[in-house]
């Protein structure tokens, strides 16, 4: 599903990731971990095409990113749900609209959007907050809105960058359960995290990254 082959990315002549190679199969849930600035976020950004690799090749679900036309990027992105580190929730829109935007972009009808969004909000247990604005929500609730927005379009891949960053352990555990549930439906999930609790005893692959290098792979 996701294949990295000798991928390197430079930022102002400094390598953020160096010669990274890995493969993630369809339906897998993998974790990427390492110290801050190790390069996990850059890896995710390359997957959702926010950054281009300087060297190496990346293939996502049969799409060779080096051969991808710029006009095709939106259509690939629709197959990738992203839980951003900085949430990227729109403060001037309520929970419903924040989630619905992912469907409006796909050109879905209002009646379908209404049904779909309420269904997803029910899944993340936020149906009662549909009319609330992001600023009125707790950190955990905000994160669940971001997850709802990421999965509402039924992407084949879900990327999460520090999804439990500022959350208390109970809320973080709730988010972890949610990811498991989404993965169980067949979605491939890649989570970049510093939170060991998130991958401990999951039996999933964990990639260790340090200084932009893949330093190891273990089972969590």
């Amino acid at each position: 599903m996701i294949h990295f082959s000798n991928v390197t990315k430079f930022y102002e002549r400094q390598a953020a990731i160096k010669n990274i190679t890995f493969s993630i199969e369809k339906g897998e849930m993998v974790f990427m971990t390492g110290p801050s600035g190790a390069g996990e976020s850059t890896l995710l950004k390359i997957i959702y095409l926010s950054e281009k690799p300087d060297e190496g090749s990346v293939t996502i679900a049969e799409w060779d990113l080096s051969k991808l036309k710029e006009s095709s990027i939106p259509f690939l992105r629709r197959n990738i749900g992203v839980v951003f580190q900085d949430s990227r929730l729109l403060d001037n829109r309520n929970v419903f609209d924040n989630v619905a935007i992912a469907l409006r972009i796909r050109g879905m009808l209002d009646s379908e959007i209404q049904e779909w969004v309420m269904e997803i909000l029910k899944m993340v247990n936020l149906r009662h907050k549909a009319g609330s604005f992001p600023r009125a929500l707790s950190g955990g609730e905000q994160q669940r809105v971001v997850i709802a927005r990421a999965i509402v379009g039924e992407p084949t891949i879900l990327l999460a960058d520090e999804p439990t960053g500022n959350l208390d352990p109970d809320t973080a555990a709730g988010i972890a359960r949610l990811f498991k549930e989404i993965n169980a439906r067949g979605t491939t999930i890649v989570i970049a995290t510093h939170n060991r609790e998130l991958y401990r005893n999951t039996g999933r692959r964990v990639f260790r990254i340090d200084g932009g290098n893949m330093v190891g792979e273990e089972i969590g």
Binding site: P74, F75, A102, I105
Partner: peptide, 10 residues
């Protein structure tokens, strides 16, 4: 920027 990342076309 958010729209673009969510897959919005030009």
């Amino acid at each position: 920027e958010t729209f673009k990342l969510l897959g919005a076309t030009r």
